[in-house]
């Protein structure tokens, strides 16, 4: 958990990561504050109810003020700098997970998992033979638990469905 590696920067985040953090607060604050004006007033709303947009406006302001405050504090301290990461492995993994999820509706859960399992373990330095065995076991466990036991219909290979039809 992040709380485990806290340095004492007094609550404004560490310098190496402050820019992305500040942008996150400012962007999310702007989106929620701006979009709260798009929320209409329902006909059934009580005249004493502050309405569905009230809290979101407050939250938007908190995020904007908080993000702005951190930015100003960092700017004054001239600590603002871009987070740098030369580590490629998480990027590969994120790409792989992204492709995996995107492919599930088209090639089905089982085929997508087979490809993902072997590729992911390969990236994570598991031997190819062990990757194949582990992926097969993983798929079997998922199938038994979710499909057989709980009757959850995992996405199927849509082309197969097409041919069946």
């Amino acid at each position: 958990m992040s709380v485990s590696n806290q340095s004492g920067d007094g609550g404004a985040g560490s310098p190496e990561s402050s820019q992305s953090s500040v942008l996150l607060w400012l962007i999310s604050g702007s989106v929620f504050f701006g979009a709260s004006f798009q929320i209409g007033t329902p006909l059934i709303q009580s005249k004493y109810d502050p309405g569905p947009s009230f809290i979101s406006m407050v939250l938007g302001i908190i995020l904007l003020v908080g993000g702005g405050g951190i930015w100003v504090a960092r700017f004054i301290a001239k600590k603002l700098r871009r987070a740098n990461s030369s580590n490629q492995r998480p990027i590969k993994m994120i790409g792989l997970v992204l492709s995996y999820i995107a492919s599930i509706p088209f090639i089905g859960f089982h085929i997508a998992t087979l490809v993902f399992g072997i590729a992911s373990m390969n990236i994570l330095r598991v031997s190819p033979k062990l990757s194949c065995i582990a992926t097969a076991v993983l798929m079997l466990v998922v199938h038994l638990v979710f499909v057989e036991m709980f009757g959850i219909q995992l996405p199927k290979f849509s082309l197969l469905e097409y041919f069946r039809a």
């Binding site: 609550g11 985040g13 607060w25 995020l63 908080g66």
Partner: peptide, 20 residues
């Protein structure tokens, strides 16, 4: 939030906003 209550408060606000 440990030593970062400000960031914790912002994170809670963001979570609250997502819940809306």
């Amino acid at each position: 939030s440990g030593r970062r209550p400000t960031l914790g408060l912002l994170a809670a606000s963001l979570g609250f906003a997502f819940a809306m």
